[in-house]
Computed example of a mutant assay.
Amino acid sequence: MKGQEWYQEDDIAEEYEEKRFSRGGRLIDRREKQAVLDAIGPVEDRDVLEIACGTGRFTVMLAERGANVVGLDISGPMLQQGREKAQRAGVSENMDLMRGDAGRLPFPDDSFDSVIAMRFFHLADQPASFLSEMRRVSRNQVFFDTFNRFTTRSLYNWALPMGSRLYSRWEVSRLLDSAGLHLVDDDHDFAFPYGLYREIPNELASVFRDLDTTLISSPLGKRLASVSYWHTRVP
């Protein structure tokens, strides 16, 4: 797994959200959360598992909406940040954060209504095995995102300390077939790489976001999109 040791550093966990979701990164945070909610629909009283939950951005959001959420991550410091966030939000009783390996999920088959993984598959060295595990423990739905090959993300990758795994649509289709998942819907976004938004003030980021949305809405939109969201079902 790319960056496994890096993500477990105490200082990385403490600074993670401040570096990624302040300034223009707030637009990314809002878009990702909306993508999750659009895909899995009403979550009240549903059992949801988040793989690689990190500091609990999505687990807390889902718990606030009444879901029974389990978040799993390999980083103890990240999970501690998530527990503190859950306490501040008053949703600790609705969620459980645990340390574990996404390649060997410690749950029986069909344990959850929905299983999600955000910002995970770009780090996966064996994506097929991870997706297969997600499908195994889901009785209904699997949702995840990928960073796309042949887009601005390819250029941005050069600037990253550990790079990212990038996917073509064909590769994702092959992964879904091997996991026995049915594609319900896919959505594509962000012609400009995430790193650009993080480096500029929120007000300026809004201007770029308007242009970005226009580009994505064009006939070439899917080809330009650096991020894809994949909504799948268990047959």
Rank of each mutant, 00 (worst) to 15 (best):
G3Y: 00
Q4M: 13
E9S: 10
E9R: 11
E9A: 14
Y16N: 07
E18N: 14
K19Y: 15
K19N: 13
F21G: 02
R23M: 15
L27V: 03
K33F: 05
Q34I: 03
L37E: 02
I40K: 05
G41Q: 10
P42K: 06
P42Y: 06
P42E: 14
V43D: 00
V43K: 00
D45M: 04
R46F: 01
V48G: 04
A52V: 05
R57C: 01
M61C: 05
L62C: 04
R65C: 02
R65L: 15
G71L: 12
D73L: 03
G76R: 14
P77E: 10
G82F: 04
G82P: 04
R83A: 12
A86C: 08
M95P: 02
G100Y: 15
A102V: 15
A102T: 01
P106V: 14
F107P: 05
F107Q: 08
P108R: 13
D109R: 10
S111Q: 15
S114M: 06
V115F: 13
S129I: 14
F130L: 15
S132T: 12
E133P: 08
L155R: 01
Y156F: 09
W158N: 00
P161E: 05
M162N: 00
L166A: 02
R174Y: 10
L183P: 07
H188P: 00
A191Y: 14
F192C: 00
P193M: 07
G195H: 06
R198F: 03
R198E: 12
E199L: 14
P201I: 03
L204T: 11
S206W: 04
F208H: 06
R209K: 08
T214R: 08
L220I: 06
L224K: 04
V227W: 09
H231S: 11
T232P: 05
T232G: 04
R233F: 09
V234Q: 09
P235N: 11
